[in-house]
Amino acid sequence: MTGFKLGVITDEISQNIEDAIRIAKQYGLEGLELRSVDGKQLHRLSDQRVEEIAAMIHDAGLQVCGLSTPVFKCNLKNQEETAAHHRMLRRYAELARRLEAPFIRGFSFWADGEWDAAYPGIVRELQRTVPVLEEFGVRFILEADPSVFATNGAKVASLVRAVSSPRVRALYDPGNNLWDPDGELPYPDGYEALRGLICHIHAKDAVREQGRTDAIAIGKGQVGYDRVLARLAEDGYDGWLVVETHYRLASTLSEEQLKRPAGYAFSAGGEEATMECLESLLDLLGQHGQKIC
């Protein structure tokens, strides 16, 4: 039996941090992952507001399990954009230290060209993050996303290995595979590609049919969480498993909202959908005899 640490990304519930804390406590979660609060991405909040949020989370007996950032969702060929994102990375590293968050989640630049041609430049920019990560004692976890160059586990793994630093690791999000233009399977393919590099997991689900992908409650889609959870237990994973709902009951998130999740419009209707996902995930974990530690 393994013990996952369970968390949720706060703006999948609400832009009000109090709402996210309430839901986390209601479902017995241990952690909150921060992306946008008060309608703003975290790096745009004042230091005073960040301190207030940190105090509320601490007083609730919860941890900040990571920072979901938009770092390197930018144009690799645009030097000004790339430089701005390196400055953004430093700001997030400062916030991670202040919030005692172990991870900064980031990406591999907008996919506006060929993977093979872009690959050396992506590796170079990721390697440039290492001194900042070492300075602040935080890790950068690279996530696959259909809008960036690394759209799946195999590509993320190749980049992480090429960077060759313990400060740069992988985030496994099997749900994202259902948007992968290369068609990598969430499991076993996505997991096996990243095995040994994973230090954080996001959970979402979706259905892909006739070239269209629609988000759905965890456990009701095509990820196959029964198999994923069983394998994680077998391999002794004891890190964070964080719900990233990306699903709404009475509406559908737009492609732009999925590409750049943040703000009040993104969070609208998220509480009910996230509660459904949490109930389903807890049920699945219970079926596998897995405790939440």
Rank of each mutant, 00 (worst) to 15 (best):
R90I: 13
R91F: 11
Y92D: 09
Y92Q: 07
E94Y: 10
E94L: 12
E94G: 06
L95V: 08
R98C: 11
R98A: 15
L99V: 02
E100F: 10
A101R: 05
P102L: 02
A111E: 12
A111P: 05
E114Y: 05
D116V: 11
G121I: 08
I122E: 07
E125Y: 03
L126S: 06
V130D: 06
E134P: 04
E135V: 11
R139P: 03
I141P: 05
L142N: 04
L142P: 02
L142R: 01
E143I: 00
D145R: 00
V163Q: 03
P166G: 11
R169E: 15
L171Y: 09
L178G: 00
W179T: 03
P181M: 10
E184Y: 07
Y187K: 04
D189I: 10
D189T: 13
D189W: 08
G190Y: 04
Y191G: 03
E192L: 13
L194E: 13
G196W: 06
G196P: 03
I198G: 11
I201N: 02
A203G: 06
K204V: 07
A206E: 02
V207L: 10
R208K: 12
Q210E: 15
G211D: 08
T213F: 08
T213G: 07
D214Y: 13
I216A: 10
G219L: 10
K220L: 14
G221C: 04
